[in-house]
Nucleic acid binder design. Structure first.
Lengths: 204, 204, 204, 204
DNA sequence: TATGAATGAGCCTTCATTCAT
DNA sequence: CATGAATGAAGGCTCATTCAT
């Protein structure tokens, strides 16, 4: 390289991390090697290992960074809201999360699947599901959401959103998918339907 | 060298496929090479390539085999049923599908994620979602399920089931998860709650 | 295959040999495996080894077959000719040999180069050069050709013809090449120019 | 692991290239794998690919290196010669070129034949024939050589020299071969013999 | 005898990781 | 600290050759 760019360690680490995010997002996990990332970060290959002990560590770091950023963003959004408009919020957050997922592109496969993801699962407090669980807790406490089992429902609704993004990415109509996703969430969190079991019984 | 075991091509292919399923299930995609599979199948490495042109082809074959088997199984179950007890069926199939997923173990990551899955997506007619769509179509036609958008809802409910299996695999309580999964499906497919939108409306 | 075709061993061997010639000619040594040849010969792979101990043996057999055929052809041509028109004959044979070489296509590289050729050189009595040597011997005896060293000249003139075919194959103008080849041969075998050494001396 | 030897890329590349030349020369293309070369170069196998994208690229590099070296050498020899003694020069260059070829040993087959040679032919400006063509051009311009067709004659005379080396390598007497080769070249480039066509006519 | 399934050594190529400078 | 050359374990794939049926 032309000239050494001396940076504070944290800045350099951040540059590498950002480069990794860009490269992973664009090219996906395949065709993305350590060298691709350091090249994108305009630093030397060996430098990578100054900041990340192994390749998997990078992946974990990327994942955690994204999740933390998302969580922080979420917190920001509701930090100053005195009274949440729950159902509006739900739709808004659904859209937002799906948009976020779509934006991840190839990154998603890289950090949420593959060996790194399997061997080093997201810590609970970081997971998207736990964010959702937070929302559910408050919403239920506010008496707006039905009293579902929070942890499991959060996980499963998260899967719905996640799957919605995949569906859109794979070519399904965005609005259709969004509509169905919203429907599932609304139905799941809405109040119990009074006569739910009867109509079917009759139908049979 | 052990004695040669000469088999009809179909049988040998099947043996290799079965070996692959076992190995993949137990060890996951990492730590599973062509040689591991042929060793498990008690045949020579080179023989692998008589039956599968590339490693990815094997993965696709495994995936298709599993999906086809599941679909066939499903068809079998309802082939002779004159009158479906829809809500019972729903619960039963939910349990069954989740059990199936859990049983896949490391196989799931191997064949539904990773390069092979990305570059060679499941053909539509084979996908689990399309099976679900079939069920939805009939259920809606029978007037039991709400008139949801079939394709997208099928995909998203599939994600719920899939996520449920993951959740259980990752240590969450099986019954808890199952209950929430059932709840989401029931709510999604159940009749519109007459007053559903009111409480929120008032809340706003 | 549909039905076993039982052939006399010699016929079968010949079929395989012919198939090899066709395949080698068309595809060259790369991309030509034992199986390609047996497929072309419409027989089973294992049958190959009934007639040729190794792959290299096939190559040698092909080479010898071609050379023998050429030699026989040559003999035929002059068997009944009472009086050879030497210089016409020279030109005719030059053309013929080059045409033969060109016709070999990929075969040439396969059988006259490569490991087989290196480790198992053509036996002297079979070589094209030895045919040429025969011609030279007679021509010199007839007092038509200059008294060159027969063995070495034959080899080198053979290289000229061989090179001429290569040149044409690689895109040079056929007539141009033929003319130069003829010129070299004529000059080499023609009578000593009386004043040969003087002009250059003067020129310097 | 032996101690790491860190070299400037150009130096290392050169070491690998030289090692390749040695190994290829001694053992020929068969029985020479990437690992043999890196072993000879006292470096790790993987390092090979820092300098040569593929095996064939190495072969091409070796070939070009040899041809360039020879050409440079040739140029050097005549850079400072004011007046060329053409016929002496011819004999000298014949000897030299044949010696060069002989020295190549197994290298010749490796780089001038085989898949690499077929798929990536020598660029024209590098070929030995083009060097010869240069010589012919000047010699003809000087009025010393007969006005032959330069390109084709160069190619064919090159084949003579090349064949001469092969002949010597295969056991023919060196001096005999050289004498005949010289004769062919002299005759080809010498002045037209006055009565060339008559003697034969009479002889018949 | 004919068939084609089975064998396994061989080989190129990739790339995370290390470390001399 | 930064650099990028060096390392070497993997691992996919080929194909001549063997041999059970």
């Amino acid at each position: 390289m032309t000239a050494r760019r001396r940076l504070a360690p944290d800045d350099r680490r951040r540059e590498v991390l950002d480069a990794a995010i860009r490269v992973l997002r664009d090219r996906g996990p395949g065709g993305c090697r350590v060298e691709d990332i350091t090249a994108e970060a305009r630093t030397a290959k060996g430098n990578f290992y100054r900041y990340f002990a192994t390749w998997d560590d990078l992946l974990v770091a990327v994942r955690d960074h994204l999740l933390d950023a998302y969580r922080e963003d979420l917190a920001q959004r509701y930090a100053s809201v005195p009274q949440i408009e729950w159902w509006e919020t739900v739709d808004e957050e659904i859209d937002r999360f799906i948009a976020f997922q779509l934006d991840l592109g190839g990154l998603h496969e890289a950090v949420f699947h593959g060996p790194a993801a399997v061997e080093r699962p997201v810590e609970k407090h970081r997971s998207a599901a736990s964010m959702l669980a937070g929302l559910l807790t408050t919403g239920i406490a506010d008496g707006v959401f039905a009293a579902v089992d929070i942890d499991t429902t959060a996980v499963l609704l998260f899967d719905v959103l996640h799957g919605a993004a995949d569906a859109i990415a794979s070519g399904m109509d965005r609005e259709e998918v969004l509509r169905s996703a919203r429907r599932i969430v609304h139905r799941t969190l809405g109040p119990d339907p009074p006569q739910r079991q009867q109509a079917p019984d009759i139908a049979l």
